[in-house]
Amino acid sequence: MILETLSWLCLVLGGLLGVIGGIGMHRFPDFYTRLHAIGITDTLCAALFLIGLAFQAGLTIASFKLFLIFAFIFFTSPTASHLLANAAMLGGLKPVLSDDDVANSEQLDKP
């Protein structure tokens, strides 16, 4: 019963964090800041979902597979984020910095 509640809590919280990350994708002004919003959905949101499902599965092969998915996401997601950021920087995309006005973000459309 406690496990059931805990897993329910994890799943709902994970879903909420995912939606928040999706909102962040639209609220942040430029590509580099949006990467941070993706960071939320890739780390805590995914972890909460998989932990919540592992509570449902108990100690079975299913939870081992969930752990593997968790590990793969945690190893690949920073690499993908870094590659994206690095490619954007080498491609000449200028980040909005705090000294600039955050509101006028139209000029970064294309270098």
């Binding site: 994708m25 959905t41 890739d42 995914a46 994206l84 954007a88």
Partner: peptide
């Protein structure tokens, strides 16, 4: 969009989801 990197990042997020 607006840049191609935004699109790739968004597709990465869709993949994770």
């Amino acid at each position: 969009g607006p840049t191609v990197y935004d699109r790739i990042a968004a597709m990465n997020m869709v993949g994770t989801k």
